[in-house]
Amino acid sequence: MPYNRVDVAMRELLSAFSCLQSAELTDRLARTAAAVAGTAYAGFVRVDALRQEACPMHVHTPPGDPLRLRRWLDESGVLKELAASCETVRLPPDVSMGEPGFLATPVPVVARDHTFVWVAGRGFCDGDEHLLGRFATAAGRALEAASGCESAVRLLRGVRAFRPVPP
């Protein structure tokens, strides 16, 4: 009964590759970015390939969003600035203008459109920029690994679906 072993092995492999959920990973990465930067706000922004539009793909805020950062992201013009930028964007806080302080750096991800990881809620310095850049590299590797696992699961399901039927 070699096909039973194949079935078991294939199920175990699919199970191992399927345990990494990209949405959960993105949430964990955002929470960790906030912790690394010493803020309560972080997230990811995706920029289209033509660099015309940017949209938040994940936003992590504390309950109630006291700085109203979600609204600020939509209304401030920072998304347009990210769409046009290939480099790190740092904006100082200005309480009188409702500017929370913002730092975004590109995530080196080959398999996706341009992606930025951002943190907000205080003033940021060169050291913060360096640290977030290193974090962005690790986050990019994690996102690519998750994407690779999702692709492997799809391919393995195809192998499983088309394997020969035992006589």
Rank of each mutant, 00 (worst) to 15 (best):
R46D: 06
R46L: 04
R46S: 04
V47L: 02
V47F: 02
V47K: 03
D48C: 00
D48A: 00
A49F: 04
A49V: 03
L50H: 05
R51G: 01
R51A: 03
Q52W: 00
E53C: 01
E53H: 08
E53G: 00
A54F: 06
A54E: 01
A54L: 01
C55M: 00
P56V: 01
P56A: 01
H58V: 01
H58F: 02
V59E: 02
H60D: 03
T61H: 05
P62C: 01
P62F: 01
P63S: 01
P63V: 00
P63T: 00
P63H: 00
G64W: 05
G64Y: 03
G64L: 03
D65P: 11
D65T: 07
D65V: 06
P66F: 03
R68I: 01
R68M: 05
R68K: 07
R68Q: 14
L69V: 03
L69F: 14
L69D: 04
R70N: 14
R71M: 05
R71W: 10
L73H: 10
D74G: 08
D74L: 12
D74N: 05
E75N: 08
E75T: 12
E75G: 10
S76D: 07
G77L: 07
V78C: 07
L79T: 13
K80T: 13
K80L: 11
K80N: 10
E81K: 13
E81G: 07
E81T: 15
L82T: 07
L82N: 09
L82P: 12
A83D: 07
A84F: 07
A84V: 09
A84S: 15
A84E: 14
A84G: 15
S85K: 08
C86A: 11
E87A: 14
E87F: 11
E87Q: 15
E87K: 14
E87W: 13
E87V: 08
E87P: 08
T88N: 02
T88F: 02
T88P: 11
V89M: 07
R90F: 02
R90I: 04
R90A: 15
L91D: 04
P92K: 11
P92D: 15
D94P: 15
D94Y: 10
V95P: 13
V95Y: 11
V95M: 12
S96H: 15
S96Q: 15
M97T: 11
M97Y: 12
M97H: 14
M97D: 13
G98R: 09
G98I: 14
E99W: 13
E99M: 10
P100I: 06
G101L: 14
G101C: 15
F102D: 05
L103M: 09
A104R: 10
A104T: 11
T105M: 05
T105A: 06
P106M: 06
P106F: 08
P106Y: 08
V107S: 03
V107I: 12
P108S: 05
P108E: 10
V110T: 14
V110M: 04
V110Y: 09
A111N: 07
A111F: 04
A111E: 10
A111C: 05
